[in-house]
């Protein structure tokens, strides 16, 4: 992989040059928190943010997206609005890039989702490294570093950013700046290693995931699920803010006074009461405890069976979004009874 460096004072210049590749979006401050948003000016970007309210999945799987328009006589005509828009997401953290790589696998496979694929192709990602706060457990989830899925990835190593070039597009971005980027030398590689070590030591939360699928199997009947079911409000906030939750609902609407209409998909959550409800009225997960168990089970155990790793990346968003303070780390710790385990 090509590794270069960019002096920090030249970042503004880089940002202005890179706009020729697409509309620039980055974390900006909003009511004391951060959101990914189109930049009106570069100085609005907050590259030292903790986490955005919604993860970047909103760009690839929009909260509401028209899939088809229906016209009598024409049938279902695919909607392509917005799919070819070129966007640059600037300042995506490693865990969020990792999450997009996970979504890539879900929306590929035998049946590729062409809407997701089109957006993924047209949205460039410039990642940026970060230091963990008290909610981050990406290291436990092996998502604190990412080796693909970005076009460029910046590491803050003091006076400059070290830049990993991930794709040909990323390379074009570098080249378009003329000679802003410089080669790195051995001492600077050591700067990177030092930062990496410091980051590792900064984590305050750790969960062990190695035999988690087995633990989940063994604790399937645990009373924890009933307790959580009592507590959970089924609001779905954790799903909305989760960078890897991809469940969606599909709704057909008819235009007033005509037989034409459109088919829209919308974010959904397995915590909503209707998630497993079928036409006859039977609900395969009617109780809240069965739904919250399913959410944990699918993320931490089911995904391992399907894709070889949990779909959780440890971003900590669900912990702060939950109105009743259900904390995934505490749940896993309780399932493992870590207080009994001498190693912790």
């Amino acid at each position: 992989m090509k590794i270069l460096k960019l002096p920090k004072e030249k970042l503004d210049l880089f940002a202005s040059v890179v706009q020729q590749f697409g509309e620039l979006h980055a974390p900006v401050e909003q009511d004391g928190r951060y959101v990914f948003k189109r930049l009106t000016r570069w100085s609005d970007a907050r590259l030292e943010y903790d986490r955005t309210i919604l993860p970047p999945k909103k760009y690839f799987l929009p909260p509401r997206e028209a899939l088809f328009r229906y016209r009598p006589g024409e049938g279902f005509v695919p909607n392509t609005d917005g799919l070819d828009q070129r966007i640059i997401l600037f300042g995506v953290h490693a865990c969020d890039v990792y999450a997009i790589n996970i979504l890539d696998r879900v929306f590929a496979g035998k049946y590729k989702d062409p809407y997701y694929q089109a957006r993924r192709k047209n949205i460039a990602i410039i990642g940026i490294d970060c230091l963990p706060d008290k909610q981050c457990f990406c290291r436990s989830m092996r998502a604190d570093f990412v080796d693909h899925g970005f076009d460029l990835f910046f590491y803050d190593t003091g006076d400059y950013y070290q830049a990993l070039v991930g794709t040909a597009l990323g390379d074009d971005m570098v080249l378009a700046t003329g000679n802003l980027f410089e080669p790195v030398d051995a001492a600077e590689i050591d700067d990177y290693k030092r930062r990496s070590w410091n980051k590792r030591r900064a984590f305050q939360v750790d969960v062990e995931i190695r035999d988690l699928p087995e633990i989940f199997e063994m604790e399937y009947q645990s009373e924890i699920w009933d307790e959580l079911g009592e507590k959970c409000l089924s609001c779905g906030s954790c799903s909305m803010v989760c960078p890897t939750c991809y469940c969606y609902d599909v709704a057909d609407d008819v235009e007033l006074g005509s037989r034409a209409g459109k088919r829209t998909r919308l974010w959904d959550s397995c915590l909503f009461a209707s998630h497993a409800l079928v036409g006859s009225g039977e609900n395969f997960r009617g109780s809240r405890s069965s739904r919250i168990k399913y959410r944990f089970y699918h993320k931490q155990r089911g995904f391992v069976a399907e894709y070889g790793r949990p779909s959780c990346v440890g971003c900590g968003r669900c912990v702060s979004a939950c109105p009743v303070h259900i904390d995934v780390v505490q749940v896993i710790d309780r399932l493992r009874r870590v207080e009994d385990v001498a190693s912790r």
């Binding site: 035998k110 959904d268 397995c270 209707s274 998630h275 995904f303």
Partner: peptide
């Protein structure tokens, strides 16, 4: 088996049973 489905192709998440 019967389950709620919105896509039929393993994306929408509704027909999950355990990990299948």
């Amino acid at each position: 088996l019967e389950r709620r489905m919105k896509c039929g192709i393993g994306k929408c998440g509704h027909c999950g049973i355990g990990y299948k």
